[in-house]
Amino acid sequence: MIPMVKLSHEDVLKLARLARLQLTDSEVTQFSGEISAILGYVEQLKSVDVDSLMPTSQVTGLTNVMRKDDMQNYGPTPADLLKNAPATKDGHIKVNRMLA
């Protein structure tokens, strides 16, 4: 028997705030049910004894891949990179004011 996780509307709204998503009322209702069901499914890991095992975050076995601290030319110019920006000014990306 899988213990049921139930995300309330407030829980969903809090997650959305953390993730910078603004949800409609119907999305909140939808996600509260769906995410609860998915979290219910993954609950099956709770009963597995893996306390003695190290967590795996990558599978290559590589560690500290370094390169020379030189400037390298990969092709695109600053102008190429700015071309997709919604707004620019004097060769910089322009954003809304951060501090009120």
Binding site: V12, P55, S57
Partner: peptide, 27 residues
Amino acid sequence: RRIMIGTYVLSSGYYDAYYKKAQQVRT
């Protein structure tokens, strides 16, 4: 949906129970 599930399993208080546990099961 995935952004919110990810945010949940990585958030303080749930990280060990979900994310770390999954990484150990991965091992």
